[in-house]
Design a protein around this nucleic acid. Structure first.
Lengths: 207, 207
DNA sequence: TTTGTAAGTGAGTAATCACTCATAAAGAGT
DNA sequence: ACTCTTTATGAGTGATTACTCACTTACAAA
């Protein structure tokens, strides 16, 4: 039936389903939020960008804050998918993991910056970050880190300190290019990933 | 004459000078801004916190944005002071520099977080960060890094990549504790500085 | 004392905000 | 055709915003 309807009408003028409208609003919200920040964005502007009336937003999301949370939640969760690969050793895992995260950050650069900016002010965003990024990051990295330590490949540094340094360098890669444009010398993500990983694994000192 | 006036009146009820009022407003603005963000703060609230009328703010600062810039500028510039010490070798410099910056960040934790958050949205803040933190950081660190490379102590990695990783770990130390409270294991700044520096200099790998 | 000037004040203002609601439109079921 | 339900709409609303301005206050110079 539904397929029949779609073929009866031109695709461009086809009436959109409720879910499609919801998606339009979410995408518009991401665009506006990441450009102007949560408090700097207005529901009127988001509605205009989504091509809907302002009232439509509040039919899908009770409040502006609920829209914020809806913007963050799914994007955080889809970061976990790529851990299904089998890695040979801890170093190899770190290399793959780093590249994977760097690509994810590059793809969602605006959203990452937005999340960390708004985390300063909204408890909800902090919780989303904690439950999403940090929690999942730990559950993925920790076993490989422990394995590396047990095998004598990694130094037995405190895991939180290691994780903090690692996440700091990785996340700042995305932020740097926006705050200090043109500063990073690497042309490709692979190049940047290699540079970051090399420094992280071997350190700055010779020997 | 002025001294005479001050002694004639109780210090607590003494009429404040224009500069003192300006300082009151700036301090109040820092407090409110760092808690609620630029767009989340109102001039009315800042005025209340500063103990002045709302109109007084606009006698000292033409617009709210001018107040924002005034809040950022002096704080950025006072970070440069401590480079007057003589350091023996590049490694020793990095140790001192890291501790110094970590303490500076800890003291102005809210402001640092605020600056990086608002840098996502305001060009003025980005420029202030670039001219202040990054520019000065480079001018201080680069000579020592070059020296270390020339002496064969440091690896000849690209300076911007090194700087980005270094700043990432250092700056994220302050942000982490706020976004992920209770995550960092170190009790003191010295401990954290040692941990960060060790990982940064020697890397995670054994050997 | 008088006067001139710089600084402080807070009610007022136009604009803007998130959110509401009466109304309309469009299927789906009968 | 008729009704029921779901969804979209945008003018309207009260609250809030950054900023103004007519007025006051305090003090220094004359």
């Amino acid at each position: 039936m539904k397929l029949n309807q779609e073929t009866q009408q031109q695709k461009s003028s086809r009436k959109k389903t409720a879910d499609e409208r919801r998606q339009d609003i979410l995408e518009a919200a991401i665009n506006i939020f990441t450009k102007k920040g949560y408090n700097g964005s207005t529901t009127a502007e988001i509605a205009r960008a989504a091509g809907v009336a302002e009232g439509t937003i509040f039919r899908h999301f009770a409040t502006k804050k609920e829209l914020l949370i809806a913007v963050l939640t799914p994007k955080i969760l889809n970061g976990i998918i790529s851990l299904d690969k089998e890695h040979k050793d801890p170093v190899e895992f770190f290399r793959c993991f780093l590249r994977d995260r760097l690509e994810l950050i590059k793809e969602n650069e605006g959203l990452v910056r937005f999340m960390f900016a708004e985390a300063q002010y909204h408890n909800e965003v902090r919780e989303a970050l904690f439950n999403g990024i940090l929690g999942q990051g730990i559950s993925i990295v920790k076993p490989w880190f422990d394995k590396g330590v047990k095998e004598g490949v990694f130094k037995p540094v405190p895991f939180p300190s290691m994780m903090r340094s690692f996440m700091g360098t990785v996340l700042f890669y995305g932020i740097f290019n926006h705050v200090f444009p043109g500063f990073s010398p690497e042309k490709t993500i692979e190049e940047a990933a290699d540079q970051i990983l090399d420094l992280f694994l071997h350190g700055l000192l010779v020997e």
